[in-house]
Amino acid sequence: MNELAAVIPFRARTGNGEDVARLIAGALPHVESEAGTTTWLVLRSEADPDLIFLIDLFTDHESRNAHMSGEAAKLIFGSVPPLLAEPPSIHPATIVTRKPAPGKGRM
């Protein structure tokens, strides 16, 4: 089975990128308890510091659905929107290929 993902770009209001990234990163303790969330990345663009990307990888649909309605999502979507220039757009995705972690085989 292919691993599933979600990519969510957050466009912060001018000058609020650092605060948005910090608030999103604050959800990490909730994500760490999710067995089906295999990778969770918060990226701040170097080209546009007010653009933050949240990238999640999941083992299956159930894990992705649980994550999207879980405590991390509640924290992020309950605290970040006032700092955004526009609503975030969630992009569910399927991983086509990726470089495997050391000791793991290719998908």
Rank of each mutant, 00 (worst) to 15 (best):
A73C: 14
L54N: 04
D60P: 09
L83I: 02
H67N: 08
L54G: 03
A66C: 00
S69P: 02
N65T: 08
K74Q: 14
F77Q: 04
E62I: 08
D56G: 11
A73L: 10
F58T: 08
G70A: 00
G70F: 02
E62R: 11
L83P: 04
A72I: 00
D56H: 12
G70I: 01
F58Y: 15
F77M: 08
L83N: 02
T59Q: 13
H61R: 11
S63N: 13
R64K: 02
P81L: 05
A72K: 03
T59R: 13
G78S: 06
G78Q: 05
L54A: 05
H61D: 15
L83D: 01
S79V: 04
S79T: 14
S79Y: 03
R64Y: 00
L57K: 07
D60T: 08
A72R: 02
K74D: 14
H67W: 06
R64L: 03
P82D: 00
N65S: 10
R64M: 03
I76S: 04
R64P: 00
S63L: 10
I76Q: 05
P81T: 04
P81F: 03
L75C: 10
E71G: 03
T59Y: 15
D56C: 09
S69F: 10
A66F: 01
H67V: 06
S63K: 11
G78A: 06
A66T: 00
F58G: 08
S79A: 13
V80C: 15
V80N: 15
D60H: 12
F77L: 07
E71Y: 05
H61P: 12
V80G: 15
A73G: 10
P81Y: 04
S79E: 12
G78C: 06
L54E: 06
S63H: 13
K74L: 13
L75T: 12
L57Q: 08
S69Y: 09
A73Y: 15
E62S: 12
H67R: 07
H61E: 15
F58Q: 10
G78H: 03
A66D: 01
L83K: 01
S69H: 09
L57E: 08
S63P: 12
F77Y: 10
A66M: 01
F77A: 03
D60G: 11
N65P: 03
A66G: 01
A72P: 04
D56N: 13
D60W: 12
D56V: 11
G78K: 02
R64D: 00
N65R: 09
N65M: 08
I55A: 07
V80I: 15
T59K: 11
E71R: 05
E71L: 06
E62T: 12
P82T: 02
S63M: 11
P82V: 00
A66Y: 00
S63R: 11
M68W: 09
V80Q: 15
M68Q: 11
G78L: 05
D56S: 11
M68A: 13
E62M: 10
P81G: 07
P81E: 06
L57S: 08
H67Y: 07
I55M: 06
V80P: 14
L54M: 06
L54C: 06
T59P: 10
A73I: 12
G70Q: 01
F77H: 06
L75M: 14
A72S: 07
N65Q: 12
E62P: 06
M68P: 07
A73V: 14
D56E: 15
